[in-house]
Each structure stands twice: as structure tokens, then as C-alpha cells.
Amino acid sequence: MNDEDLALLISRVGLKDRDAFSRLYRASSPKLFGVCLRMLKDRAEAEEALQEVYVKIWARADGFVPAATSAAGWLQAIARNQAIDRLRARKPVADVLDEAYDLPDSTADPEACAVAAGERRRIDACLDELAPDRADAVRRAYIEGASYQELADHFAVPLNTMRTWLRRSLLTLRECLER
């Protein structure tokens, strides 16, 4: 099913169309179950997470904006977020949004509105610009839901070093993706 068809189905689900919900489930659940399994690495928990994911999809489909994100990306973000929430609840990690990080009003940044469409495939090329271990850390964080501590352990570096790795990597990626 292409992304446009998927977008149309989600829009219909936003109108509380149960039949569309069933079709959306058939079309998307293997991928989203794959996300839950890969991140949670526990079948029972992945099944529980998948239920939560689709209950959220049903509740939130009316907020789906086809223009803003791809349909597949929107669905996968819901699945990843659900799995990450479960991972973080299972094994809490340190808060980092302290006062210095704390959420002030954003200053005007016209680039924040820049459309990301078309940039999507460039992530692989941009990851290649990072040192291999840092690109690997980014992938492990995103795909497996690894925490800073788990990454620090895996790469045998101090926690703060890992934070700096990932944050610098994010800035490099952003710069690369905007070129």
C-alpha cells in the first residue's frame, strides 16, 4: 500500500470509520509489531504495546495532517514512542531537561518551518559523515531504543562522553540534512 492510500485510510479513521480502521490495521500492523518487538525484545510486552498503539491511532487519527508527515512515518512514530515509553518506564534513566535545558519560548527560526519532505532518504548519507562508532550509536538509540547509559556501557565510554557524542552527532546531522 503506498503512502497516499495509507494517508487516506488514516484520514478516514479520523472520521471514526471502523472499516477503515480494520483495513489500516491489516496494512500496517506487521510493520508496527516489528517495531515493538525489535525495541521491547519481549513478545508479550510487544503485544501489549501494539494494542496501545492502535488505540492511540484510533483516538488521534483526527489530528493527522497529511501535509506535515508521511503516513507511514506518522504510524511508526506512534509505535516507536509507545515502545520507548515502555522501555523508559521499565528502566528509568536520568532526566536531562534541567533548568538550562528547560523549555523557554522558541525564538524565531524560519528554518524550523522548512519542509523536510525529500530529505528522508538522505539520513543514511548523512550518517556516513559521522565516525562509524557515532553513527552506530545513533542507530542503536533510534532503532533499539538504547539509553545513554546502555550506549555508554556498550561503547565503554563515560556517560557524559556519550551525551556529547550523540548531541554533536545530532547537530552534524542537522547541518548535513539542510545542505
Binding site: P30, K31, F33, G34, V35, L37, R38, T69, S70, A72, G73, Q76, A77, A116, A117, E119, R120, R121, R122, I123, D124, R139, Y142, I143, L173, L177
Partner: peptide
């Protein structure tokens, strides 16, 4: 959107 290219790593089950 930018990072969603990495979603290809998830195998459907």
C-alpha cells in the same frame, strides 16, 4: 521525518 529513513531496519512481523 529526517530520521524515519531508519525505520527500514524494522522487519515486519
Amino acid at each position: 521525518t529526517n530520521l524515519s529513513g531508519l525505520d527500514d531496519a524494522y522487519q515486519p512481523v
